[in-house]
């Protein structure tokens, strides 16, 4: 079953990559942003499985984005692949540091502490003129091993890079979920005492999850920064974190692929809502979330489970 899901995921990825030359540029850009943000959502899924919700994941997203932008601004470095990796590493190191604090907290305290940390970064960026203050600053056009595409070519190159990073991240997170550390999510949520008495440090498992989520957040932020071509403090603002939590609820935590599909659905709905109902787009998004919670409480991913049950028991109600 796992191998089958990987094949389907790989096939969808290839179709998505092959479709790029035939899609309008705005669709490619929208999909790139969606798939970049999906990495942050995937990190939230890692945390959510253990019962933790981070309302401050934009912290790592913003750090990844600013790492990319500052490398261009300070030393003129523009290699996209190295910059994405750098964004992930810097955000991961930040997560490793603050993880010592975060891993000690649970439930609302974890959520509020993560939110507070991201808002501290927001406050620092807003007050720092050398970093562009509230306006932020532009990101240099990325290059690929010295090759500098422009226009639609650049969009497609970033799209393919995002898909490649997504594929690696999905594979890694899939393997992680099937490891002892990943599978301990439900046991930790259920009963931390028993986990400790089986010989595992719950704190270090949660710390690892914070770091994984941080790296994914940083990778997402780095890709988003190159795609948008601009960074600003709003990337660390709580509404950005709230958007990621929104997509996580929409996607559900059951499947790795749900994070990518959920993120794409969110971007599509948002774009159309803004286009069709510019004054009411937030209400549209709110309605989508409400309907999801009412009819798909375990997110879009649960559609797969329902489909599986139907296939296994033909004729029975889902």
């Amino acid at each position: 079953m796992q191998a089958g899901a990987q094949w389907v995921g790989g096939l969808l990825l290839l179709v998505a990559a092959a479709a790029a030359p035939f899609l309008p540029n705005w669709v490619v850009s929208l999909a790139t942003i969606a798939f970049a943000n999906a990495l942050v959502v995937l990190g939230l899924v890692v945390l959510w499985r253990v019962g933790l919700v981070s309302f401050g994941q934009a912290l790592y997203y913003c750090i990844g984005a600013y790492a990319v932008a500052l490398m261009g601004r300070w030393i003129g470095f523009t290699d996209a692949i190295a910059l994405v990796l750098l964004g992930g590493i810097v955000a991961g190191l930040t997560a490793a540091g603050i993880g010592f604090l975060l891993a000690r907290y649970r439930e609302i305290f974890f959520a509020m502490l993560s939110l507070a940390l991201s808002m501290i970064l927001y406050g620092v960026l807003v007050k720092t003129e050398s970093l562009g203050s509230t306006d932020g600053f532009s990101v240099l056009t990325p290059t690929f091993f010295g090759y500098a595409p422009h226009g639609a070519q650049l969009s497609r190159a970033l799209y393919w890079l995002t898909l490649a990073i997504d594929a690696i991240a999905a594979l890694f997170v899939g393997l992680y979920f099937r490891s002892v550390a990943g599978a301990l999510a439900a046991p930790i949520r259920d009963n931390e005492i028993r986990v400790e008495f089986l010989g595992v440090s719950v704190t270090s498992i949660i710390h690892t999850k914070v770091v994984i989520a941080g790296v994914l957040g940083g990778l997402g932020g780095a890709l988003a920064a190159m795609t948008i071509g601009h960074v600003d403090p709003a990337m660390a603002y709580w509404t950005t974190s709230g958007g990621f939590v929104f997509v996580t609820v929409l996607a559900g935590s059951g499947y790795v692929a749900a994070a990518f599909i959920g993120s794409l659905v969110f971007e599509v709905v948002r774009s159309f809502a803004v286009d069709v109902m510019p004054q009411l787009w937030q209400m549209t998004l709110g309605s989508v979330l409400l309907l999801t919670i009412l009819f798909l409480p375990e997110g879009l991913g649960s559609l797969v489970s329902r489909l599986k049950r139907r296939v296994m028991k033909p004729g029975t109600a889902p």
Binding site: S179, G182, L198, G199
Partner: peptide, 17 residues
Amino acid sequence: AIAHRKPGMFGNIMTPV
């Protein structure tokens, strides 16, 4: 799985459940 995990710092990650 915990009892049979691989030794070392990354034993929890390197061992399939």
